[in-house]
């Protein structure tokens, strides 16, 4: 916690300064509220609209977590099968990269046509946005296992599964966590996009309603909440990383 305060005060100070500047400019130039609301107005909206906004926030957080879990599982399964079965790697990896070039926005309507408006297309959207960083990071981690370590394990008679569980998986874990950090933040974005496909609740729905009724202050509340959620997810992954990977604390390759 001390560490956080020591490291965190600078960006917080900059942010505060920015808000003050923003407030002053809005007050002086008298920009209309629907164009750019002042920070105080946004804060007011957060406080007064909290009870009606809260269910949206929870709904998005929930679906983001679900999507993230599915996406992580898919990402890891893909990475491990690509790593363990060379012919799958050669034939599927290029396709995976290609799949990342299809914009989710374009894919979303298709998913609705195929799977309706339920939970499934939403989970698919989030999975598509978050599995790839995990797959790439894990594959990278597997590849970085030093030859000397593998050589020792082979000479000592390690089988394929021992090689994986005792060497490759633990060695790749820090990389996997780098991927998880990226995916965790992506999952919130993915959740919001998935809600645009049609949902009853969620930040995505709230945002659409707000912008179509020119409630710009509410749009900012939505943006802010997305940022806070992403940060929260990120923090959870960092905490998990600290718990699971204590051995690299001195290595300096992590932050």
């Amino acid at each position: 916690m001390n560490y956080l305060i020591r490291k965190g005060w600078r960006p917080i100070a900059v942010l505060l300064l920015l808000f003050i500047l923003w407030e002053i400019i809005v007050k002086i130039t008298k920009v209309p509220d629907w164009l750019l609301p002042a920070p105080t107005m946004i804060i007011n909206e957060i406080i007064s609209g909290w009870t009606s906004f809260y269910p949206d926030l929870v709904s998005t957080a929930k679906i983001a977590v679900e999507g993230f879990l599915v996406g992580t599982t898919v990402g890891l399964v893909v990475a491990v099968s690509l790593h363990l079965v060379p012919w799958i790697r050669d034939s599927v990896y290029p396709l995976l990269i290609l799949s990342q070039n299809v914009p989710i926005i374009v894919l979303a309507p298709l998913l609705v046509i195929w799977f309706g408006f339920g939970l499934l297309p939403k989970i698919i959207v989030i999975t598509l946005t978050c599995f790839f960083p995990i797959t790439v990071a894990a594959l990278d981690g597997f590849k970085q296992v030093p030859y000397a370590h593998k050589h020792y394990m082979l000479m000592a008679g390690a089988g394929k599964s021992q090689m994986f569980w005792k060497l490759e998986w633990p060695y790749a874990l820090p990389s996997v966590f780098s991927g998880l950090k990226i995916s965790a933040t992506y999952s919130v974005m993915g959740a919001v996009i998935s809600e645009w496909l049609g949902a009853e609740k969620g930040i995505g729905v709230y945002m659409t309603l707000a912008s179509s009724s020119f409630r710009t202050d509410k749009v900012f509340v939505a943006i802010l909440s997305i940022m806070v959620l992403s940060l929260l997810f990120f923090a959870v992954i960092v905490a998990a990383e600290k718990y699971f990977i204590r051995w690299q604390s001195k290595g300096g390759t992590m932050e």
Partner: peptide, 8 residues
Amino acid sequence: PQTPSLLP
């Protein structure tokens, strides 16, 4: 081996 190859 020549390098100790201990798992960190």
